[in-house]
Simulated scan of single mutants.
Amino acid sequence: MPTVEVADLKDGDFLLDVREDNEWQAGHAEGALHIPLSEFAARYGEFTQAAPQDGRVHVICRSGGRSAQVTMYLVQQGIEAVNVDGGMQVWAAAGRPVLDDKGAPGVVL
């Protein structure tokens, strides 16, 4: 499973958040694309339009399980994708900004 540490992510890296709507609304990384795992197959076209054509996709969820599933799927499709180790829990613990759906400080559910 290709993985990346939160500490290795840079501003501007493409981040795909596959958590459910309530988790996203409570707190997410600014600029991330949100497509819940439960809707990913149906919204795959939306992902392909937003994803970088020549860059890596960093997939994140709460702790790494759901994002691992999506990462493996994307890799099978020939897309350079990596799972963010530890997910949003590690993101928040590392002091990275977490915003709610109104742009205020958020929390990770």
Rank of each mutant, 00 (worst) to 15 (best):
M1V: 15
M1P: 14
V4G: 03
E5S: 11
E5G: 08
V6Y: 02
A7S: 14
A7K: 15
A7I: 10
K10Q: 09
D13A: 10
D13F: 13
L16C: 01
L16A: 01
D17S: 04
D21I: 03
D21N: 04
W24T: 02
G31C: 01
G31A: 07
L33S: 03
H34N: 08
I35V: 08
P36S: 06
P36D: 02
F40V: 07
A41W: 12
A41L: 11
R43W: 05
R43T: 00
R43N: 03
E46R: 00
F47I: 03
T48V: 11
A50D: 04
A51E: 03
A51Q: 09
P52I: 06
P52S: 04
P52K: 00
D54G: 08
V57W: 07
H58S: 13
V59Y: 00
C61F: 06
C61M: 05
G65K: 05
A68S: 14
Q69A: 12
V70E: 09
T71E: 08
M72F: 12
Y73E: 12
V75Y: 04
Q77S: 09
Q77P: 09
G78S: 03
I79E: 04
V82R: 06
V82W: 01
V82A: 14
G87P: 09
Q89H: 15
W91C: 11
A93N: 11
A93F: 12
P97W: 08
P97E: 12
L99Y: 15
D100I: 14
K102Y: 11
K102L: 10
A104M: 14
A104Y: 12
L109R: 15
